[in-house]
Every structure is written in C-alpha cells, then in structure tokens.
Design a protein around this nucleic acid. Structure first.
Length: 301
DNA sequence: AAATAGGACAACCGCAATTGC
DNA sequence: GGCAATTGCGGTTGTCCTATT
C-alpha cells in the first residue's frame, strides 16, 4: 500500500490550463500569496486543480519575470558548462539563469541543446570539426578565461586535430598551436557533457549513493583553482569571497563566482576535494577541465 | 488535402527531502 | 524520534503544432 495521493484525481481538472484558470490563480496569489500551503490553495482560489499542479503552473509560467524561448548563446554556454559540471541538477542550473525555470532549461536541453552537441560530437569524428560558440566559456567567467587566445581558438570555425592518436595530441588552427595533455581538457569537456556527473550525495553524512564520474571532485577543484590565476595570490588569512574554493594562488579580482543563492550547494558538490596546496598551476590559462595529471595538462601560451 | 512523423513545450508522476506536530 | 503532510525535483508523458510525404 503506497501513500495517499495528494489529491483526488477524479475531482481535479488535469491537462492544459485555460486563460481563466491562469487568471484566477494569478489573481489569488497576487492578493493573498501562496499562504505557504499549495495543497489548500486551489480550494481557496476556487480552482479545481491539484495543489501540485497550481504550484507548477505558478512557478513555471505565471510568476513574474519569467522568460520564455530564445536562449542566448551566453545561456547556452552556462547551461553546457554547468551540465558538464553537475549533471542534470536543473534547479541549480536554473538559479544561474534569471527568469529561466528548471523545466524550461530541462526541455531546452533535451530538445535542442543536446542535439546541437550531438551534432558537434558526430562531426568531430571527421578530421575537421566545427567549434560552435556554444563551447565558449560564459562571459561571466573570469577575464583570463575570456582571453583573446581562447576566444581565437574557440571562435574559429574549425579546429583541426593533427592526430587523435598521439598521446599528447595537438590542435592547431590558422594562427596558433596549442598542446593539451594525455587526457586533454577539451575532450574531457565533451565527455563531461555526454556523461555528466551523476552522483547524489546526502547532505547529512556526505556519503554518496552513486560513484561520481572519475576524478570529478579533483578536476572540479582544480578548474576552480585556476579561474582567476593571473598573478595575485591568496594568503592563508585572506577572506575568500563566496564562490571561491581554490587554493591560494589567485588574483583577488577575478575568481570564478557562482551565484550566492545556491553557493552552499555548489560548495557541497565540490567540498569533498580538500585543498592540498598544490592544485594550481599558476600562470596557466585553464579552460574548463583538466584531468588528474595536473602537471601535464591544461595550459598553453 | 490528408496522413503522419517529429519537435517543442506544458504538465504529470513518483520519489526524496523537508517540515511540523 | 516517529510519523504524516507538504514541498521540491527530475524523469517522463501528453498534447499541440509544424513540416514532410
């Protein structure tokens, strides 16, 4: 015997909301708020709907400042980056995109963005691969991530692998070469997108019910370490701002910062990798990801 | 013009987490 | 601490619309 359903399905309306229902719900919430009780709300508002349905309708469609459709390139990049980092944690991803809902982003990912990516991966099996702007780091990322060098590489129409068989394989384009490590960070990024972190960790004891994708924590920490590494350093006693989890190597003005609304959750994801003091290659231009071979990868210039 | 396949998006479902008693 | 109610989340399904045959 399962738990009792939240509403009597025979006595509630289901399916698409009519404009009249929308108006009723909006008017009620505008006037009285949700009252902290969605289950009781539909009756009070005179709606023959399940409370869950009302909540969903409000959160995903009716509440103020909701944006629909037309995701920008910037939003694409943020979604891709975060998906690669934390997987399908849509609510966290949505928190980084003001006006977007988790449902919207999930739908967008499943119907469009993933396909964009698949197209890219598919093409990448050829020797000549297209590099969509999708893979540019978000402009909200620190300045050096936006550096001209990276932009040159990833804004170019094509990246051409010289040989994917070489252990340290190289990419080049028209005006520069750069070398990545044995497990180069770019392929790691793609791999991350295709096979994101799936672990779910309990908040109470820190244990994980699933095994994280290999090296996630270490990689993540290392990546964060390297956001903002253009010279300045953190002393141990320095107050690090929200969103900064790295070691003491960074320029104070350019740390990677998550939105503070869910910073604790992001910290939680990352915190299992405790600082060991050597997680940073100073003066290297990190892109998104590196692997465990910190000494060997993730830099050029 | 009709049938149908596919895409886009809204909504639902079930489960886990949280809250309150 | 235990239990039930409620909320929040992510996966999945349903429905509508458009493009294609």
């Amino acid at each position: 015997m399962g738990r009792a359903p939240c509403c009597d399905k025979n006595n509630v309306k289901r399916g698409p909301w009519s404009p009249e229902e929308d108006a009723k719900l909006k008017e009620f919430i505008d006037k009285y708020g949700t009252g902290g009780n969605w289950i009781a709300l539909p009756q009070k508002a005179g709606l023959k709907r399940c409370g869950k349905s009302c909540r969903l309708r409000w959160l995903n469609y009716l509440r103020p400042n909701i944006k629909h459709g037309d995701f920008s390139d910037e939003e694409d990049r943020i979604i891709c980056s975060l998906y690669a980092n934390i997987g399908s944690r849509w609510s966290i991803i949505a928190a980084q995109l003001p006006g977007r809902t988790d449902n919207d982003i999930k739908n967008y990912w499943n119907t469009k963005l993933k396909k964009k990516l698949m197209g890219f991966i598919h093409t990448s099996s050829n020797q000549r691969i297209k590099s969509p702007n999708l893979f540019l780091p978000p402009t909200t990322f620190p300045p050096q991530i936006q550096s001209q060098a990276i932009s040159n590489i990833f804004k170019d129409d094509y990246l051409e692998p010289i040989s994917s068989l070489q252990p340290n394989f190289m990419y080049h384009n028209n005006n520069m070469n750069f070398q990545l490590g044995t497990n180069n960070q770019y392929s790691y990024f793609l791999e991350s997108l295709m096979n994101p972190m799936q672990a779910s960790c309990s908040s109470s004891d820190g244990s994980c019910s699933q095994i994280p994708r290999s090296n996630f924590e270490e990689t993540q920490k290392f990546t964060l370490d390297n956001y903002g590494n253009n010279g300045g350093t953190w002393a141990d006693h320095d107050q690090k701002p929200d969103g900064y989890f790295g070691n003491n190597h960074q320029n104070h003005s350019s740390q990677f910062q998550y939105d503070t609304s869910n910073i604790e959750e992001v910290k939680e994801l990352i915190s299992s990798s405790s600082s060991n003091g050597n997680g940073c290659n100073n003066n290297n231009n990190m892109l998104f990801f590196s692997d465990e071979n910190k000494a060997n990868i993730g830099y050029w210039g």
